[in-house]
Design a protein around this nucleic acid. Structure first.
Lengths: 113, 113
DNA sequence: ATTATATTTCAAGAATGATTGAAATATCTC
DNA sequence: GAGATATTTCAATCATTCTTGAAATATAAT
């Protein structure tokens, strides 16, 4: 993952409403959720929600598909996951023990030695 | 972790210079790094660096100690880790398989069933 | 005490992001 | 095609955040 990509994802999630939206979609799972139900669930105005969903989409954190007049948004777990890898990359000069549980060793692409 | 806490951490990391600083400190490991060396390494003006380090500190992502006239900053892995847990919490309605590798099951506090 | 090094504080200007309301588009139903 | 529902677009205001430069503090060395 490129740095700018990571910054984009972090910025997208670094906002109350968007973090709520994303977590709601993470809970919703791969079937996703129509915008209307998200707005309802989080008490957001429809245009505000579109604004935030656009940012999540620009950061590749969600995808959309149309179903009738509903727009159904789905969380992209891969994006979240590459972010996590990026953050824990190059942790502790390769010295395990300082690294938190689940970091580097376990998560990264077989770079374990 | 409370939501506001997560937003603070995300916001702190959602900026080019700060993400660089944090990752540099993550690489530096538990011994930390003096501000001067960080500034040098990343070509940042000292006051700008202080500004960014303050934000990382407010988000509890780094700690400081003084050594002579140097201020030594150290990354707090725990903070990063609780963020990761927070993000992957309640993933996919408990249905494994959709969750990305290393998520929930592995990471969370034995909530695997 | 004076000078040098390391870092922080303060204030101002420029840039970016969020919220709101009104209007527009797309799809569906009758 | 007229009206209803779901969502998006646009523009304006307001608030936050970043950057820069100049001055201040703290420690160290002579």
């Amino acid at each position: 993952m490129k740095k700018q990509n990571a910054v984009a994802i972090l910025a997208a999630l670094a906002q109350d409403n968007r973090l709520d939206v994303f977590r709601l979609l993470v809970e919703a799972g791969p079937e996703g959720m129509p915008a209307g139900r998200i707005a309802n669930s989080l008490k957001l105005q429809p245009n505000a929600l579109t604004f935030h969903l656009d940012q999540l989409r620009d950061a590749s954190l969600v995808t959309v598909r149309r179903d009738g007049r509903s727009m159904i948004y789905t969380a992209r777990y891969e994006a979240m996951n590459s972010l996590i890898s990026y953050l824990t990359d190059n942790c502790c000069q390769g010295q395990p023990g300082y690294c938190p549980p689940g970091t580097a060793k376990g998560r990264k692409s077989e770079k374990v030695s």
